[in-house]
Design a protein around this nucleic acid. Structure first.
Lengths: 221, 221
DNA sequence: GCCTGTGAATCCATTCACAGCT
DNA sequence: AGCTGTGAATGGATTCACAGGC
């Protein structure tokens, strides 16, 4: 945190982004990378990479480049992914299961420690990852007991707003919402909405323009 | 398409976004809405709403507002969601299944008509939605036969780039990629990457700042 | 010579503020 | 009076271009 001047939101988005190819290079690649190369791998501008990183310190060496291992460590520290985060999930449908079973999350330090559903038939079920589904009514108690900071919502749209309220009241400070509805919370709580069909509609829009000869360009996420 | 002056990418993102509350209002709500109200429901600025819509025509009536039904129809026409789109999916894990079974997609006109996997044990399986999993080797043939335009990738990261190539070669023009890797295609093909853990890392970053008293604000997507 | 870090310039997006219609 | 449509103003983010260090 060398520069305290406003850090663009999009810089943070990209930081997570840069770490993907870096992780891959860690195994089988050179120990050092230039902003040009990294930019190429991520499909962005090289100056962008340098500026993004420079917000947080001087991680590179002029005339040389960035040491991959050290850079990755810095990025993880900045993003807060150098430590474990405990999550809970509400709504155990297909999507919910795919998330709790997702190896990528675990590898990055995100561990699901509780799973909830409102459907009595699902409560008590043992998931492959070892978690047992609990009833929604227990959210408050469990979240406090396990000091869970992040909640993931994978319920149907109609339940999402209600669940967000419950999570917020239980002390959850950050919510990742997959229900196709814009969730708002009263309390001071950060929400990130992930709506697949919005992405798909975007794609379709650009697809139609493509056929009309316009040179609509799309890039990332 | 009244104004042909460059339409911001973010306008398109929001269009899909506006349609969510509008759909809800269609059932039980007034027939007309003001930019102010719609903006409130979506958590954006009212001028933004008006400007976004004005790119495509004059859908409102001054002194009155926007007729919800007509507005929704226009938005769907703009986004290309007023017709059916056939999709295929590659990678039948938990996530893949949750997508093909997703009711929201079907409701919006996105229909999965083929499912592929490279795992011989999965090939031949009948999914709840009625589709039978086919081998990856058939992608070329099936995509052409069914004239599929959009491909969804839900394979592990290591397979994603290869699969994107196969899809592109088969004639697919748009890809929605869920594998945690930045996929690039050689051919003229639109890609939209959806990486859950990027979203999560974002959330964690802002969560940490929150505790340090900084007033970091987050909103949509 | 090579590559980073960064002010300045450019580009894009959002918001303001008001003219214009109903 | 009320609310849209839009030029002008503001605010951010990206890219350029080069000074500075290896």
């Amino acid at each position: 945190m060398t520069k305290d001047s406003k850090i663009p939101n999009s810089t943070i988005e990209r930081l997570a982004f840069y770490s993907r190819p870096l992780e891959a290079l860690l195994k089988d690649g050179p120990p050092i990378i230039s902003s040009e190369k990294l930019a190429g791998l991520c499909g962005v501008n090289a100056a962008q990479v340098r500026k993004d990183l420079a917000y947080f310190g001087e991680f590179g060496v002029r005339g040389v480049g960035y040491e991959i291992k050290a850079l990755l460590r810095e990025i993880k520290r900045i993003l807060g992914t150098d430590r474990k985060w405990t999550l809970c999930i509400v709504g155990i449908g297909n999507l919910g299961i795919s998330l709790v079973e997702n190896e990528n999350f675990r590898k990055r330090g995100y561990v699901f420690v509780a799973a909830f559903d409102s459907d009595a038939r699902k409560v008590g079920t043992r998931l492959p990852c070892g978690l047992t589904v609990e009833h929604e009514g227990n959210i408050g108690k469990v979240v406090k007991a396990l000091e869970i900071k992040i909640g993931v919502i994978t319920t149907p749209a109609r339940a999402a707003q209600r669940v967000a309220g419950i999570l917020s009241k239980a002390g959850i400070k950050a919510i990742l919402n997959f229900a196709p509805i814009q969730v708002r919370t009263p309390e001071r709580c950060i929400i990130e909405n992930v709506d697949f069909s919005v992405r798909l509609e975007n794609l379709v829009y650009h697809l139609e323009r493509l056929y009309k000869g316009e040179n609509t360009r799309k890039k990332q996420t």
